[in-house]
Amino acid sequence: MIKLNLFLKSKAATFIKTESRGDVPGWVLVVLMTTALVTGIWSIAAPKLTTILRNSLDAMGGIR
């Protein structure tokens, strides 16, 4: 009974170790794709956002 228990625990530990390693490439891909999307959107939107910010700050400068 003890040998069976130890055998099952070792097999479960091996299964858990191999199962948890399999998703790392997926997360790396998600991070890289997100970074690419943010960089692409930012490069398109940055000039317009800069103009909006400058106009807002200039308008606030006239309040005082």
Results as ranks from 00 to 15, higher is better:
residue 60 M to R: 07
residue 48 K to G: 03
residue 17 K to C: 04
residue 14 T to E: 15
residue 62 G to H: 02
residue 56 S to G: 09
residue 34 T to D: 04
residue 30 V to F: 10
residue 20 S to D: 00
residue 51 T to F: 06
residue 58 D to I: 07
residue 42 W to P: 00
residue 6 L to N: 13
residue 27 W to D: 01
residue 26 G to A: 03
residue 5 N to T: 14
residue 38 V to M: 02
residue 61 G to E: 13
residue 53 L to W: 08
residue 46 A to S: 14
residue 30 V to T: 09
residue 13 A to R: 14
residue 50 T to P: 00
residue 55 N to S: 15
residue 57 L to R: 13
residue 11 K to A: 14
residue 22 G to K: 13
residue 20 S to P: 01
residue 50 T to G: 13
residue 37 L to S: 09
residue 50 T to E: 14
residue 13 A to V: 10
residue 56 S to N: 12
residue 7 F to E: 08
residue 59 A to H: 04
residue 22 G to P: 01
residue 5 N to P: 00
residue 10 S to I: 07
residue 49 L to D: 07
residue 35 T to I: 06
residue 21 R to V: 07
residue 26 G to L: 13
residue 59 A to R: 08
residue 42 W to T: 15
residue 43 S to K: 13
residue 60 M to L: 15
residue 5 N to H: 13
residue 13 A to S: 11
residue 43 S to D: 03
residue 27 W to H: 07
residue 13 A to P: 00
residue 51 T to R: 11
residue 10 S to N: 07
residue 56 S to Y: 11
residue 42 W to H: 06
residue 52 I to T: 09
residue 17 K to L: 12
residue 56 S to H: 12
residue 4 L to Y: 11
residue 53 L to T: 10
residue 29 L to P: 00
residue 47 P to Q: 03
residue 4 L to G: 12
residue 26 G to D: 04
residue 52 I to E: 10
residue 19 E to C: 06
residue 47 P to K: 05
residue 41 I to M: 10
residue 35 T to G: 15
residue 6 L to G: 01
residue 11 K to R: 09
residue 37 L to K: 02
residue 63 I to L: 06
residue 15 F to E: 02
